[in-house]
Nucleic acid binder design. Structure first.
Length: 313
DNA sequence: GCGTTCTAGGAGCTATACGC
DNA sequence: GCGTATAGCTCCTAGAACGC
């Protein structure tokens, strides 16, 4: 049935039909619903128009349902219960809540987020499913259209319908192989860093988005040469480990177990120190009042505050 | 744009006719 | 006689029209 036809159906008609089917008597059905017998008779008339069926035939005592009415009687209780549940469903309970959340995230961040997040969800909200979507150029549009729920974003958008919750300030770190010439240099200069190739670990499709390190260099009128692009952190670290290339990433990447002794952190030159970018959680405004989204937002904020702090220097 | 008035339609009421 | 259907009425509400 089309939505316009559906909109013409008065839900009260179905409630009345249910009572009529139970009582099989117009007068008693009217008493149960606190209306007069003629009013109930008129409602029955409207029900007959709606279903294009007499629904009941008169008998010496009360009414006898037609086959169509008996058929409706099989479905009405479940239907009315479902409507009742829909209306009264106001309390969010993570233990029973069923939903699939889609979160767009740059993999470097996803590495440190989804492990602890899913561990908590498994315990507290076992019916919630999370789909991690790779951050791309179209992520903002997807957020606006509702095809994703959240995006771990590198900067606040100008889009008025997108809410941005700051999670942490991010100062990138430079990773290199342990035998890299800069590994032992205590105070490398900016030009020292720019003399080497870089591995760009960032979504390859996000052409217009600029990694934090690149935007910092832009502010200084500099740029780096990236000779390898990948969105896969493990692959990126493998390339760094087996070449003299450098890689810039968020500071909490130092917590990653993927960083073994074959990789070291390079000191940032003084020009880059103190230049930070805020990473935040973006979501469309229409989900701000959703208890489930609020709950997950708090979880993500708590986890990032706990796990995105650098433990390893 | 906002508030007031008018109007049409829906729903319930009483009284009463009709059917089983 | 009991229960249902209908007629005619009133009341309420939403939308349109109008004036400020």
């Amino acid at each position: 049935m089309s939505p316009d036809k559906l909109s013409r159906i008065d839900l009260n008609l179905l409630v009345t039909l249910q009572v009529l089917l139970e009582e099989r008597n117009v007068t008693r059905a009217a008493e149960r619903l606190f209306i007069t017998q003629p009013a109930m008779s008129r409602t029955l008339s409207r029900l007959r128009d709606l279903f294009d069926d007499p629904l009941f035939t008169r008998a010496a005592r009360g009414l006898i349902p037609t086959p169509r009415a008996e058929e409706l009687q099989e479905h009405l209780p479940d239907l009315l219960n479902a409507v009742g549940n829909l209306v009264s469903l106001t309390e969010f309970d993570p233990a029973t809540y069923e939903h699939t959340f889609r979160i767009a995230v740059v993999e470097q961040f996803g590495q440190s987020l989804f492990g602890p997040l899913m561990a908590e969800l498994q315990k507290e909200a076992p019916n919630i499913v999370v789909q991690a979507i790779e951050y791309t150029e179209g992520t903002e549009d997807m957020l606006a259209k509702g095809s994703i729920d959240f995006a771990i974003d590198l900067e606040k958008t100008d889009e008025v319908d997108i809410d941005f919750l700051p999670l942490l300030s991010n100062q990138p770190v430079i990773i290199a192989g342990s035998k890299h010439p800069l590994a032992s240099k205590k105070k490398p200069k900016l030009q020292d860093l720019l003399a080497y190739n870089y591995v760009r670990c960032f979504p390859v499709d996000a052409i217009k988005s600029v990694p934090v390190f690149d935007s910092m260099l832009e502010e200084l009128g500099e740029q780096r040469h990236c000779f390898f692009h990948t969105s896969n952190l493990l692959t990126a670290l493998q390339v760094v480990q087996n070449s003299d290339a450098l890689m810039a990433g968020p500071a909490f990447i130092l917590n990653s177990e993927l960083l073994d002794k074959k990789l070291v952190k390079i000191e940032l030159p003084k020009e880059l120190k103190g230049m930070e970018k805020v990473i935040g959680l973006a979501q469309h405004r229409r989900t701000l009042t959703s208890q489930a989204h609020q709950w997950l937002t708090e979880k993500i904020a708590t986890i990032t505050a706990k796990h995105w702090v650098v433990k390893r220097k």
